[in-house]
Design a protein around this nucleic acid. Structure first.
Lengths: 356, 356
DNA sequence: CAAAAAATGATTGACGTCTATCTTTTTCAC
DNA sequence: GTGAAAAAGATAGACGTCAATCATTTTTTG
C-alpha cells in the first residue's frame, strides 16, 4: 500500500553517492565536496527523507541527560516546579531521557554559576535554568553554549544572556491580564487597586505591575492604582503590611499580588468579617488554590509550569537531536477561577509500572 | 560513571532463563510456566528494566498510524482542529507517526460508522473521533476496540460507549466557569443573562447551560438567566434572534453563548451604538478572537484543542506501545481575555524542513 | 607529471528488540 | 517408564543509523 519511508541508503542511491558520503553530509562530518553536498540535499528533499531518530539513538546508545536548575527554598512555586519534574522523571525514562534536578540557593548568582560549571564538566546534553540577572550568569550560559550544550532559561530569563531559548511567560502580558480582570470585575464603577510585589526592583514583578497599571490607565482611569506594598515574597511581611494598609485606606476595592507570600494575604482576608475586595494573584499553589476554592480570592493567574516544563523538554530534545524545531508557542498565562481549577496534583504517585 | 541501562538480555540472565523466555514474557507470547513468568517479572523489577521503545520500533519497522475523525462543514472550531492536525503532521513524522485526518458529515451517525468501519479494515493503530451520540456509533467503537485498536473520543464523548478514554473538557465545568465569570463581572449588582445554545437537546450545550445556571443560582440569584435562544449553531439565526431579544428585553445585562454561530452575535454587537452587555462565549476562532481584540466581547472560554490533540496523541502512542500511561490530566477550559490571547496560529506554515 | 591532499567508496560491527525456526529439556498423564 | 505436550533454550537475520577503518579515485599543487 504505502511504500515504506526512505532510508539513508535510498538517499545515497538517489544522489549517486555512497552511503558513506551521504552519512558524512547528514552528520556534518566534513570532507565532502560542495557538489556532493548539494546532490545529497536534493535527494533528501526529493525523497522526503526523515532521519530515523529511533535508529540513530539506538546506534548511539544515547540517553539524553538534561538538567533543570531550580532555586531552592520554601517558595511553593518552585516546589511545585520540582514536583512536576519528579513526576515526569519515570515517564521520561521510557523515552530515554534522564532528568536531573539541581537545587541552588535562590537569588544567589554565584551558586548558580557554580552549579552551571559543574554541569559543564558533567557533560549533560542540555540545561534549563531559572534565571537570575547577573553578568556572571550570562557568561556561564555563553560558556555552556560554546561547549555545544543546549541552554534554556525557564520561568525567568536572564537579561543580557543569549540562551537557545526562553520558556516562560511574558510578565507584561501577565500583568495586563490582571488589569483586564480587575476592570471586568469593577464593571463601570470606579475603584482603587492595591498592588503587592516582592521587591519593586525585580524586573519580573515590575513588569507585571506596569502591565496591570497600563491596562487600567488605557481603560480611562476609573480604576486607579494605590501605592504598592513590597512584601519581599514573605508571607509575614505581606500579612502585616496588608493589614495596615487596608485599615488605613478604606477606598481599596481590589488587591493585586504580583509575587509570592500570598499565604499572608490569605490570612488577612480570612480574618475579615464581611465583604472583601476583589483579589487577583499569581501562581496556583496549595494555599492560593485553597483560597480560590473557599472563595477568599477571585482569580489566580498561573504560568502553567507543567506546560513550561513540557515545552522545555521538547526544545531540549529537539536541540539534542540536532533537529530544527519551530519556535515553541509562547506560554500564555492561564486564568483560574474556582470553577475551572485543574485537578489537584498528587504529592507524588508511585503507581507500580507494569511491564508487558 | 553511570552504568548503562539494562537490556532484556540482562533481565534474562538475572532471572536465570534464556533470552527467548524473557522475550516470551514481556511480549505476552504465552507458553511460559508461571514460575518463570514470576522470575522474569522479579528481574525486571530488580534491574529497573525499561523496554527500549526505540529499538522495538526499529525492529518492527513500526510507523504508528493514527486516524482523527473530525466532522466536516463550515464550523470554525472543527476547521481549527483540522488545522492543528495538519500542522502537527510533519512534526509527527519525525517520531514515525502518520496522521490521517478523516472528515465525516457532522451529526451524521451513519457516516461516522461508515468511516470507522473503513478504518477498521485499514488496520490503523488508533482512532480519535469526535463523538456523536448514537447506538451504532457505540457498537462501532466497541468493534474497533475488540479488534485491538486504541479508540479515543475527542471533544465530544459518546454516551454509552466504552472507548479507551475521553479527551476533552467537562462541559459542566465549562458552563460553571462561564457562570463564575458572569458573577465576577456583575460584582454585587443584579443582572439578567441571555443564554444562547445550538439546540437544547445536545447534551454538551445543555451541560454548559446547566453549569452556568447552577453557578448563578448558588451565588444567591442576584443574577438570573433569561429564556434561551436556540441558534442551531448558525450565525444568521443567532443574529436575527439575538437582535429581536435584545430589543424586546432591555433588562439583559449579559450574553452567554454556549455554542457556535457567534459570527452572528458579533455582528449584532458591532451594530450597537452604545454600551453593550457583558459577553462570554466559547471557542477561540477567527471571529471570536477578533471580537475579543476589538473589545466587542469580554471573555472567550476555550477548550484548547492544541492540548486536546497533544494529549490524544500521547494516549494513542502509549496504547500502541502497550505502555500504561497514567490517566491523562483532564483538560480544563482556558479563559481568554484580550490581554492573554495566544499568538494567532498561522493558517498553515510550510517552513522548509532542514535536515542536518 | 609526480606527489600530496582531498574526496569518495566499500565495508563492518555495534545498538536492543522482534520474529521465526529448530532443538533440547522438563512435565505430566497413563 | 513411555510418549506426548509443554516449556525452555539457542540462534540468526532484520530494522536504520552511527562510527570507524581502509582502499580507491579524483583533484590540487608545485
Amino acid at each position: 500500500m504505502d511504500r515504506q519511508t526512505p532510508t539513508l541508503s535510498d538517499v545515497a542511491r538517489r544522489a549517486g553517492v555512497s552511503y558513506a558520503t551521504a552519512d558524512r553530509v547528514i552528520n556534518n562530518r566534513g570532507g565532502v565536496a560542495e557538489k556532493s553536498v548539494r546532490r545529497v540535499r536534493a535527494a533528501i528533499e526529493d525523497l522526503g527523507y526523515v532521519r530515523n531518530v529511533a535508529a540513530a539513538n539506538l546506534a548511539q546508545k544515547r540517553t539524553y541527560r538534561f538538567a533543570f536548575v531550580i532555586p531552592e527554598g520554601p517558595n511553593s512555586f518552585f516546589r511545585r516546579l520540582r514536583n512536576i519534574l519528579e513526576t515526569a522523571r519515570p515517564e521520561m525514562l521510557v523515552s530515554r531521557v534522564a532528568l536531573m534536578v539541581e537545587s541552588v540557593a535562590a537569588f544567589d548568582a554565584a551558586a548558580l554559576v557554580g552549579c552551571l560549571e559543574r554541569l559543564a564538566e558533567d557533560k549533560v546534553d542540555g540545561v534549563a535554568l531559572v534565571g537570575t540577572d547577573d553578568a556572571r550568569v550570562c557568561a556561564a550560559i555563553d560558556a555552556l553554549r560554546a561547549q555545544g550544550m543546549a541552554v534554556l532559561t525557564l520561568v525567568a530569563d536572564v537579561q543580557g544572556a543569549r540562551p537557545d531559548g526562553y520558556v516562560g511567560i511574558d510578565n507584561t502580558i501577565a500583568g495586563r491580564t490582571a488589569g483586564r480582570l480587575l476592570l471586568l470585575a469593577h464593571g463601570d464603577r470606579g475603584g482603587r487597586v492595591l498592588p503587592i510585589v516582592g521587591v519593586a526592583t525585580a524586573h519580573d514583578h515590575a513588569e507585571r505591575l506596569a502591565g496591570m497599571q497600563d491596562t487600567l490607565a488605557e481603560a480611562g482611569g476609573r480604576v486607579t492604582s494605590a501605592p504598592l506594598i513590597e512584601g519581599r515574597d514573605r508571607h509575614d511581611i505581606v500579612e502585616a503590611e496588608l493589614h495596615r494598609r487596608l485599615a488605613e485606606d478604606p477606598e481599596i476595592t481590589a488587591i493585586y499580588s504580583a509575587g509570592a507570600g500570598n499565604a499572608g494575604l490569605v490570612r488577612v482576608l480570612a480574618r475579615r468579617a464581611e465583604g472583601r475586595p476583589i483579589v487577583v494573584l499569581h501562581e496556583l499553589v496549595a494555599h492560593s488554590r485553597q483560597a480560590l476554592e473557599t472563595g477568599l480570592v477571585d482569580v489566580v493567574i498561573d504560568q502553567r509550569p507543567e506546560d513550561e516544563i513540557q515545552t522545555a523538554l521538547e526544545c531540549l530534545r529537539a536541540m539534542a537531536d540536532r533537529r530544527d524545531l519551530a519556535a515553541p508557542a509562547p506560554i500564555v498565562p492561564a486564568i483560574y477561577l474556582r470553577e475551572n481549577l485543574p485537578p489537584a496534583a498528587e504529592a507524588s504517585q508511585f503507581g507500580d509500572p507494569v511491564h508487558e
